[in-house]
Structures are given as C-alpha cells and as structure tokens.
C-alpha cells in the first residue's frame, strides 16, 4: 500500500450495515466491510467494481450522506459525519442519480447553487465549457442523460471545490459528452483538485485514473496504478503477456482447429471471433497462412494486450452478480 503525501480523503476500515431487511429475516446487511483507501490532491482515484460492490455507499459515507457503522473517515482532515458548512463548501458532489429538481432550468439552478458559496466559480466559462449554453432554456425534466450529467458536474464544480466526488460520471453519456466531461476532469486534476470517482467501466478507469481501487463485496481487493494492475499476476521476467486477437470474418470458421489447443477461441456473435491466450508470432503466422489458403479476408482485425477488465475479472471472480 502506498503512503499518503497530501491526502484529501482517508478511509480506514470502513464498515456500513444497512437494514434491518425483511429479505434477511430482519437482519442487517453489511454493505461495506473493512474498506480502506486514500485519495491524493491532484490525482484521480477510481473505485472500480461491479454494481452492488459498495462503491456508492462508500462515497456517501465519505460525503456525510450516510452514517458509517464503523471505521474512520477523514475528509480534508475532518469527520464528514460532523461536517459543517465550511467543509461542505470545499467538497463538490455529483450524485449517481443527479439530484437536480426536474422543474428547474439549468442556468437559474446553477446561479442558485452558486449563491451558497462566498466565492464561487464564474458561471459563464463553466456553462460554456460543459456546453450547457446549448440547452440553457430546457427544463431539467427534458434533458438527455448526457446533458443531465454535464449539468450535475457543473453543479458540483460551481463552488470551486478542493475535493470532487463523481459517482458513475460516465453513466448515460453520449460519446461527445464523454469527451467533454473526461477532458474537464483531467484538467481539474492537473489544476490540483483531488478527484474520487466510482465506475463499473474498466475503460473509464483505464482512461482517467491515476490510482485504482478494485472493490468487491464491500472491501478493496486490489489497488494500484493502471499499469501496476495490468501487470498483476504476470511473470515480468519471461516477457510473455496474454493477448487477445479480435477479428470479424465469415461465420462458422474452425479457427480452433487451425490454431490448436494452446489458445482459446470464441465466436461471441456469428462471425465475431476472439483468440486469447499467450499469443506468439507463430500463432499469427499460422492464422494468416490458413486464411490465405482458404481465401478469407477478415473485415476487421485488432490485437489487444490484457485489459483492466481481465484483471478485474481475475480478481473478483467470473461469476455474474
């Protein structure tokens, strides 16, 4: 585990029980059991995990929205459970479900929230930067998922926070919104903001995060930079890494027969193949020679090293939750 230099958030042994639940015969359900992490200033820290892993609960305990059952949380050195307006003014929160009143219009809403701060960000550049000016006259109720997310992000940022919590920031984002939002998040990190986000998308973590905590069943099961996590479980000495070759070609080809049993071949959809395992140049030669012999030209072809998704599945198991 790394040691904190300039932490904005420290969580040690967090425990959170909810209930009592009728579905558990009136017993409490432990949603978070002994989770520890910290987040640095000027870094993006990602909590990566499947739905129900306890990511949102962890964030909400850190934000003071839920009272923890046990453990210690320090948010900018203070206990979020007894936080006053002073601490809240230094922390920006973007909730998973937005938290915006449906009847509100974007600009008056942002202006209202900015009034809660002594020295908020100027509205204009934020609105322009997130493209909110393009839907400024539309009520929140009629905004698209991506527009809502951008407005929620603006609402979290208007107070110029030192710490920013983003719960599933890419949920519902169209590619264009995603680009806008991700660029801004990276820029805020570079400006020195401490950013903590949750995601169940490996791609988000891979693109954004400086440090990743993989969360499973309410505890952290692995952590590291994306590069560290990608090398997890590999013998760095022999230089062999797992790769996957994806290609689209006519359906029903006997690729496994052509390549032998050292690699795993799957045809996920008709004509959509993946070959994974410890691929060597010989495998590629064999495959292309076989294509040449059969007169097959693939429609697409892509080779990928091990993805964060593989790491995640290795660690948290392949069972579907």
């Amino acid at each position: 585990m790394r040691s904190p230099e300039s932490p904005v958030l420290t969580i040690e042994g967090l425990i959170k029980d909810v209930g009592p639940l009728a579905s558990l015969d009136g017993k409490m359900l432990r949603v978070v059991s002994g989770l520890s992490l910290f987040a640095e200033r000027g870094q993006i820290t990602a909590l990566l995990g499947a739905n129900g892993a306890g990511k949102t609960t962890t964030l909400e305990c850190a934000q003071g929205l839920q009272k923890r059952t046990g453990g210690h949380i320090g948010l900018l050195g203070e206990d979020p459970d007894s936080a006053g307006a002073g601490l809240r003014s230094r922390v920006g929160v973007m909730l998973q479900d937005g938290g915006l009143p449906p009847s509100a219009r974007p600009i008056p809403l942002l202006r209202h929230i900015s009034g809660m701060y002594e020295n908020p960000l100027p509205l204009e550049p934020l609105v322009e930067r997130l493209g909110i000016d393009t839907f400024a006259r539309t009520g929140v109720r009629r905004l698209s998922g991506g527009q809502k997310q951008r407005l929620s992000l603006a609402a979290a940022l208007i107070g110029n926070p030192e710490v920013l919590f983003l719960d599933e920031p890419s949920a519902g984002l169209d590619p264009q919104s995603r680009q806008i939002v991700f660029e801004l998040i990276a820029e805020l990190r570079d400006a020195g903001m401490g950013i903590i986000l949750t995601t169940h998308l490996m791609d988000d973590a891979q693109r954004l995060a400086d440090y990743v905590y993989i969360i499973d069943a309410g505890r952290n099961v692995a952590e590291g930079t994306v590069a560290e996590l990608l090398s997890h479980g590999h013998d760095a000495m022999d230089g062999i890494t797992e790769r996957t070759l994806y290609f689209d070609a006519p359906a029903g080809l006997d690729i496994a027969g052509a390549l032998g049993s050292e690699v795993t071949v799957t045809e996920s959809r008709a004509g959509s193949y993946s070959v994974s395992g410890t691929l060597t140049p010989q495998h590629l030669a064999k495959l292309t020679a076989w294509w040449a012999e059969k007169g097959i030209m693939p429609v697409s072809l892509r080779l990928e090293a091990r993805s964060l998704e593989d790491v995640f599945l290795d660690i948290s198991g392949r069972d579907i939750r």
């Binding site: 003014s89 701060y117 960000l121 550049p125 940022l157 110029n160 400006a191």
Partner: peptide
C-alpha cells in the same frame, strides 16, 4: 480556455442567513 479553478484562495460558504434566504426564495418561486 481552462476554468479558473482553485486559483483564488478558497473563501468558504456564504453566510448562513444568506443561504437560508436564497433557498427560501428559490422554493417560493418554484
């Protein structure tokens, strides 16, 4: 252009009285 984040010294929350009046006004208009 980059947002002018964190450039200014953090000034904290608006006074309690103003926050409550603002919220009261906002809810009334709603």
């Amino acid at each position: 252009s980059p947002l002018p984040v964190l450039e200014t010294k953090h000034a904290g929350p608006a006074p309690l009285f103003r926050r409550i009046l603002l919220q009261g006004r906002y809810e009334t208009i709603t």
